[in-house]
């Protein structure tokens, strides 16, 4: 077995180390058919390197969650192969893969059960055999990062939806996974909470951990991810920088989606000489001013 990507002491791989270049996930010819005959995934090939921030987009039923569940072994390939941290997911348990892949589910209530926030956050690393002092350190760090310190002894089940969401994310972050999967993490979060959560995730990513974000919110995809995969009917139909994928009108149309409003604006102004631009208000605004010959 190749060396583990996540060192046993829980520290993150150092930026620039040779580990960053080794693929964390290698998926070849992945297909998945459910018992009722539905082919949810078909011929998916994908490589994820440590430190990548990938967004999975596509309409409901396109296979985003099914693909993500293959990354931690909750679903096993019916065709093809999924290798995570050097392990073929077909031959290892979900518990073993959980040491490398953390999954934040759509509904936080599905994972919250402990009598206090502190215990909820320590549950993951404890079952993974992390030494108590290290568990405590991680719990304090995540509670501070996500604004949960004042609620440490409160039962998470009675917190507000936004706080429960933060507890769910923090409780996965304490396991220090090499790959963090976030399935629609912004539901129930207000603007400030979203900012806090995504800043923490960005910091975690900057420390060399890979992140997979499943979202229907294109603003989040554009702002945070560095690579975007567009899924349609169980296939990856576009893979590239978020700006490029979300400006690919024909691919989006095939998936039954529309480009974001800024991409549509650039497209509408293209006959007048509007150049391609990053899909941010300031970049598009600047490109428009350039087009008009205004101030730089």
């Amino acid at each position: 077995m190749p060396p583990l990507l996540n060192p046993p002491d829980g520290s993150a791989p150092q930026a620039g180390s040779p580990q960053e270049t080794r693929p964390l996930v290698e998926i070849t010819g992945l297909g998945h058919s459910f018992p009722d005959g539905w082919d949810a995934l078909d011929g998916v090939n994908l490589t994820i390197a440590a430190g990548e921030y990938i967004s999975l987009i596509g309409p409901n039923g396109s296979g985003k969650t099914t693909l993500a569940k293959h990354l931690n072994g909750l679903l096993k390939p019916t065709v093809g192969r999924v290798v995570v941290a050097g392990m073929d997911t077909l031959h290892v348990s979900v518990a073993e893969l959980a040491r490398h892949v953390g999954y934040v589910f759509q509904n936080p209530d599905h994972q919250i059960f402990s009598p206090s926030v502190r215990e909820e956050l320590s549950f993951g690393p404890r079952v993974q055999g992390v030494p108590p002092a290290e568990v405590e350190r991680r719990v304090e760090e995540e509670m501070a990062a996500l604004g949960l310190s004042a609620l440490a002894e409160r039962p998470p089940a009675i917190l507000s939806p936004g706080l429960r969401r933060r507890v769910a994310i923090a409780s996965v972050l304490t396991t220090r996974p090499d790959l963090l999967i976030l399935d629609e993490p912004n539901a129930g979060l207000d603007a400030q909470e979203q900012e806090d959560v995504f800043r923490r995730v960005a910091a975690y990513n900057a420390a060399g951990h890979a992140v997979v974000l499943i979202s229907h919110d294109m603003r989040l995809v554009l702002r945070w991810s560095t690579r975007c995969l567009l899924l349609s009917e169980g296939r990856i139909i576009a893979d590239g920088k978020p700006d490029a994928v979300l400006s690919d009108a024909s691919a989006l149309e095939r998936a039954g989606m529309r480009p974001p409003v800024l991409a549509r604006l650039i497209q509408a102004l293209a006959p007048y000489g509007m150049p391609a631009a990053e899909l941010t208000a300031s970049a598009v605004g600047q490109a428009y001013l350039n087009l008009l010959g205004g101030p730089q």
């Binding site: 569940k69 931690n72 909750l74 348990s93 979900v94 518990a95 959980a98 040491r99 892949v101 953390g102 999954y103 589910f105 509904n107 599905h110 994972q111 059960f113 549950f123 993951g124 079952v127 993974q128 409780s171 996965v172 396991t175």
Partner: peptide, 18 residues
């Protein structure tokens, strides 16, 4: 379905139920 989803969520956190 809720039980299945919760089971998946706990397994994903490293809990060995089997």
């Amino acid at each position: 379905r809720t039980f299945e989803q919760v089971t998946e969520a706990q397994m994903a956190r490293g809990f060995d139920l089997s």
